[in-house]
Design a binder for these strands. Structure first.
Lengths: 155, 155
DNA sequence: TGCAGATGTTCAGCTTGCTGAACAAACCCT
DNA sequence: AGGGTTTGTTCAGCAAGCTGAACATCTGCA
């Protein structure tokens, strides 16, 4: 590994001056990235995993899924398309409202979700970086709630 | 605004069961999203803003910038291309090592960065969602440092 | 009944992440 | 000096965000 030069050495100091949004973005990328190889092995993605998580209990319409996953309808459309291609969900149109596409998890979907969750839990050990992990998560959740309500989304 | 149905109403509860990476990802998207319109007005993006931030002091090679911004060289290549197109930076090859492309900020770049920072600081008020904002940021930074070191990046 | 507006999904096209591969320039070692 | 390796950048192509627009279906009201 190459010796970083002077400018690169003060990386940690530098990041202090970043806006919070960018800190969140980088942290998300790095944390999710740690797990990408495992998911790829399973033919799954982070977006797909959360989507599966939401249809475990009962089939949902794509729009409902989009709201739950905090993405646009268009993004959810592509995510479900990919999940269907992989055989993890089935899509069918609602008899009572044929505009709606219902999404139901398949046995393969349940299985892969279970595996992914187990492996994720195991790799989560490294998050000892954060002192009070539960509080940190609560703050993230509070942040999401506030921004969601205050017009960041679905206002 | 439509009345959310039952399943959608327990959104806040649901998010508690998400993996931390996904929480970070959604939070990042929502927080950065609040500011997208302002940046678009300035012909700037979040990625571009952080890049400008790093060349304010002195010109840097693209690879150095990539390390500082925590992105791959390829991503930085495209980001600087866009910044150059907008006139916020100038790229030129290093005389002493003609493999390197040096990136220097332009007067227009300094100006737009200043404006973006001011507007961002103002809009940051809403982050009162988090109790101990400084501690929260410190934890994000610690997380980034740990994951960066432990092979999430440049190992 | 029939038409206007609301709703759910998809299509097209953009940005910004990523990886893998290509390529030129520089470095190093004999 | 020459040739293999390293280094810095770019190209190609994929995933998953986004917006705007198109399209089909449903709802509601005259």
């Amino acid at each position: 590994m190459a010796e970083p030069d002077e400018r690169v050495r003060d990386m940690r100091a530098d990041v202090h001056s970043w806006p919070t949004g960018r800190l969140l973005s980088v942290a998300a990328r790095l944390v999710e990235g740690r797990f990408d190889a495992v998911l790829a092995e399973l033919d799954l993605t982070h977006a797909g995993m959360i989507t599966l998580h939401h249809v475990v209990r009962e089939p949902l319409a794509q729009r409902e899924l989009a709201v739950l996953c905090r993405v646009t309808d268009q993004t959810m459309s592509r995510t479900t398309e990919r999940l269907e291609r992989s055989g993890f969900i089935r899509r069918y149109s609602d008899d009572r409202d044929r505009r709606r596409t219902l999404v139901a998890i398949t046995p393969a979907g349940r299985k892969v979700l279970k595996t992914a969750r187990r492996e994720e839990r195991e790799s989560d050990v490294l998050l000892g970086a954060v002192d009070d992990y539960d509080r940190f998560r609560e703050q993230l959740i509070a942040l999401i709630a506030v921004v969601t309500d205050q017009g960041g989304f679905a206002e």
